[in-house]
Nucleic acid binder design. Structure first.
Lengths: 198, 198
DNA sequence: TCTGATTCAGACCAAATGGTCCACATCGCA
DNA sequence: TGCGATGTGGACCATTTGGTCTGAATCAGA
């Protein structure tokens, strides 16, 4: 019961923060959406910033998970294919997380940078090494590993963060199963083979 | 004189809005940064929202320009190469615009969608046709044009919007000329030829 | 120089909002 | 049953902040 209350507050906060930002969301709104009183909210989370950082921390767990999967033993083509699918599923199923993460990073990650920088750097360095090993083994075209990772992130998260633009332009969102598959195939084909005709 | 004052207010507003969002920025801050009094600011822009929309409108002009360049007569490989360079230069030279645009879209573009939707849709449809013509002519691998456009946007803007993450991971930003060139080459190679070895 | 419009600043106001206080309920347990 | 710890909410407070009001400087033209 108490855990579900904390959880519902966090969920409400995630939704609202990701849409209107930290300063664009009032505790009253969060409390209302979570169906608790503001006082009660402040009982669980001492102040607004604490609520916000809790939302962020919970988000991070989900967020950096998929990249862990990369390992040298895998076939890189398969690994990239899978990674794109998983990230695109995240964009479809957890758009609020994606938006809030984007917002936080864009604002300089004032509350996140401290605890994000080191583990993120380490994780990425690790995966950069994996990608480099694939390249050295001739299993992947020579490309700067960092930029491949950035491109994987950017292209998939775009469909969550720029959802309204995607919808305005393409008329569809990832919630449409056909559009999801079309998007996935397109990204896989683009990242793996590019657009230059062979 | 008066125009320069308006301009300096808009510039200050752009910087602050893009970092802290609409609600995270006070008129006092904008006035201070622009070196005018708050009253004076409100003399030029009737209220906060009007200031914000003016910033957005000014931004849009810069933002959708590059895509105009695409035309059937061009060689697609060159067109894509050039487009990536221009967009990456925008990310380097106008990161505030990039961030604010991103923020506005993420929040559902409440103030922009109305006047953005139609022209954006038309522009993109136009360019989708160009890309499709390239494909039909065998000058480009078959790919869903929308997704190519999204990928071009996403990958280049990533370096502006996720600048602190890029810096945390790669240790450099686009301001470093060598890193800029490395990034550009990587994106060009990725989009054009993919990562699967030939 | 006079005059009216434009440009600017300081004081002020009202609403929103983060956060506190206190009083009351509820529940596990001696 | 009694009692402290855990929850819960209504009233309230202090600060921030968007915006107004009043009045003064400045400037252009007669």
């Amino acid at each position: 019961m108490i855990e579900s209350k904390r959880a519902s507050i966090l969920q409400a906060a995630l939704e609202l923060f990701s849409r209107f930002g930290l300063h664009g969301t009032s505790l009253d709104q969060v409390a209302t959406q979570a169906d608790v009183s503001k006082t009660n909210l402040l009982y669980y989370f001492g102040n607004k910033e604490e609520l916000y950082t809790n939302v962020l921390r919970q988000l991070l767990e989900v967020w950096l998970q998929p990249l862990q999967a990369f390992s040298v033993e895998q076939d890189p083509v398969e690994a990239i294919r899978d990674y794109l699918r998983v990230k695109l599923e995240l964009s479809r199923d957890h758009p609020a997380e994606s938006r809030l993460f984007c917002m936080e990073i864009m604002q300089g990650a004032p509350l996140l940078l401290g605890e994000l920088q080191q583990p993120l750097h380490d994780l990425v360095e690790n995966k950069v090494a994996v990608i480099q090993a694939w390249i050295d083994a001739g299993k992947l075209a020579p490309i700067a590993p960092h930029h491949l990772i950035f491109s994987l992130w950017a292209t998939t998260q775009h469909y969550a963060d720029f959802r309204v633009q995607v919808e305005a332009v393409a008329g569809k969102t990832l919630d449409d199963p056909a559009f999801f598959e079309e998007t996935l195939k397109s990204l896989q084909s683009l990242i793996l083979d590019g657009v230059r005709p062979r």
